[in-house]
Amino acid sequence: MIVKWAVGVLEELGRFVLYWGGTVRGLVRRPFRYWLIIEQIEHMGVKSVPIIALSSMAIGMIFALQMIALLRPFQAEVITGMAVAVSMARELAPVITTLMLIAKNGSAMSAEIGTMNVTEQIDAMETMSVDPVHYLAVPRIIAAVIVFPVLTLLANVIGVVGSYIIGVYVMNVESAAYLDQMFTGLTPIDVISGLIKAAVMGYIVALICTYMGFKAEGGAQGVGNTSTTAVVTSSVAILIADYVMASLMMGWYF
């Protein structure tokens, strides 16, 4: 039983590593289809701006509210701006952005490729001398590595604005002190580490979700199942990756 299960897991892992290798080779293989990357950036990036803005605004506001409630008894609420900005930059913005993009684009990636797979469109592509991994997966992976950090940066800015609105206008923290604390506390390293995380997570998400798409079989239900698996797997994977990266980056912050 256990042996069989372990063999299954190893096989799956093997297939995934092979797929990974294929996408890496695809990065350097001709032709370079830049228009597909642009299409994906638009699809993934531009169209996700509203949802990312909304969720990071909400997180910034809620987090500010909670911090102030916590810090007010110590009369330390001026550091809320810094606390929000730093945690957004290092952790919250990349993680929230990534989870949102998994829900919105990761599942779509896997469903699109999955549908093409079960309707023989992938086979058709192969008969026309096109490597489907090169044509479908590589542009999505490149786009994700670009889009995730850019949207994370946006989430940072909007989250901070949200926290400022709550801190200064709702909870009446003094504006100058709030901003002063924030700008002294937040360093470029905080922001950069978050952006690196976002790029790595984007890579992981696109890799897993496209892989699952190519695995889909057995009609609409199969496509549904694999995209659910894609969402769950990539969510877990990015949280693990986040922990690993956070541990590795700890030294940067002191």
């Binding site: 699109e112 549908t115 093409m116 309707t119 023989e120 469109q121 086979d123 058709a124 592509m125 192969e126 008969t127 026309m128 001398s129 096109v130 490597d131």
Partner: peptide
């Protein structure tokens, strides 16, 4: 190999039973 197959297929045209048009 897969890469050689891609080259070979330039000599072929294949019309699928279910058409398999790219729906995007």
């Amino acid at each position: 190999s897969d890469i050689e197959l891609i080259e070979l297929r330039r000599s072929f045209g294949y019309a699928f039973q279910g058409a398999a048009l790219f729906d995007s």
